[in-house]
Nucleic acid binder design. Structure first.
Lengths: 241, 241
DNA sequence: CGCGGTTGTATCTATGCCGATACAACGACG
DNA sequence: CGTCGTTGTATCGGCATAGATACAACCGCG
């Protein structure tokens, strides 16, 4: 249910912000969040079950690279305390955005095509696959290489045959015709499986699109996706056996 | 040049495959790749400057969770050797795909809107922002929360006013009108900055679309993006100061 | 003026991971 | 039948990180 595809293992993404070689990761994010909630580094450390001295030195190390993140003051009412600076909040917000997007990306089902590079034009590559030639963004592959073409299910649009194509369609898009072989209706999004020459494509559509298209198994449909949402990844095993 | 946006620090994503609590990360991927290239675990370890015994025990630990990954045999011509199994190659391929997609995602410029949650319907949320109400995928936020709305520049489509909208448009899309305030032409993709009520949106378009639209600063355009490509992320600082 | 809880700072210790090393088992090949 | 380079397996030591502890400095407040 929580699985993304037939890959078996669960795939995840972890966000990292890097500045001057210092990495701001999830552990740092929870630390800053705890400081914000507790109002002090000491309180945050004890809340997290971490060493206060370590937490403090970690914050100092981060600040050396990212600038002032925590406004710390000692003495005064309550003995002092610490609050996030505007920069600290901004950094934390940015981390949260990145982490949210990466987590969402890692969850997206994918369809994978095996192919060979036919042509490379800058970042764009043309790949020969079982369903014809497709275009995608290249990643360090050269003409003739055996590659895998990765298409995110959220980038694919499904439409019924005869339907007019949108005006911003460019030659950099991929189009194929196929047959619906499965519909997994969800609350807000549905996963549709479309077979193209026997190759199953996963397509993510919104509930509204699902209602509009009213897809059923056996329906003939066309699918379309942007080349920029297609990644060409070199095969792990190219050379000698 | 390599920067993604005004966030300052470089954002990255690291892929991880998880099974039974065991994490397959980039270090493991390079190990498997080296084993494939060297034809032996010993050769791979020395190539990477890592301990052979550690590499071996790491592979065993991985195999306990992911299944047989490396076909190891001792004795024989050359003293033996190791090769990746089909499962091993498949796992490595999957890791490479995920890493490629996450890296690409982390590079995408973003536009961020501050807003408050107006309505939540399942996974979809309606947010009040400076440019009006927008829809996006919710992530653990509730009505009334102060949130940040994150829109990936690659998900935004730009089109000239009066142009017909595509047929798969649903009410789950967001539309706005604005003015072009900057064009950063690239080789295969260009980054366009569109101001909507003074709020700058970053839009990524292909070179072909750039040519077709022939955008110049001051042009009045409309932008559109799918709600499913919009993430609603809770603000770090909601509660007391 | 002392109290209290926090920030600074230094140091010791535990822990876990990794490299290094050593040695046995293995089996095709000359 | 010995050689050779590999896979198994066990153990030791180093190193980096984090927790634990201790103590000084700070300062609003009662």
């Amino acid at each position: 249910m929580d699985e993304t595809d037939g890959g078996g293992a669960a795939g995840r993404g972890r966000a990292v912000l890097i500045e001057d070689g210092v990495e701001f990761d999830g552990r740092d994010a929870t630390l800053l969040r705890a400081v914000h909630e507790a109002g002090s580094v000491a309180g945050a450390a004890s809340e997290l079950g971490r060493s206060r001295a370590r937490a403090l030195s970690r914050i100092e190390a981060l600040e050396e690279a990212f600038g002032t993140l925590v406004d710390r003051r000692r003495g005064g009412s309550g003995g002092g305390g610490s609050r996030l600076t505007d920069d600290g909040r901004a950094l934390l917000d940015r981390y949260d955005r990145l982490q949210a997007v990466l987590a969402a990306t890692a969850r997206v089902p994918e369809t994978v095509l095996a192919g060979t590079v036919k042509e490379v034009d800058g970042e764009l590559a043309v790949i020969d696959t079982a369903v014809g030639t497709v275009r995608g963004l290249n990643g360090e592959t050269a003409v003739g290489d055996a590659v895998q073409v990765r298409i995110g299910a959220d980038a694919v649009t499904i439409y019924e045959r005869g339907e007019r194509v949108d005006p911003d369609a460019t030659s950099a898009r991929n189009r194929l015709r196929g047959e619906v072989v499965g519909v997994d209706a969800g609350e807000t999004v549905s996963t549709v499986r479309v077979a193209v020459d026997g190759v199953p494509f996963r397509v993510l559509i919104t509930a509204e699109s699902a209602e509009r298209l009213d897809l059923g198994i056996g329906d003939e449909v066309a699918i379309r996706w942007k080349a920029t949402a297609t990644r060409v990844v070199g095969h792990a095993t190219e050379s000698d056996p």
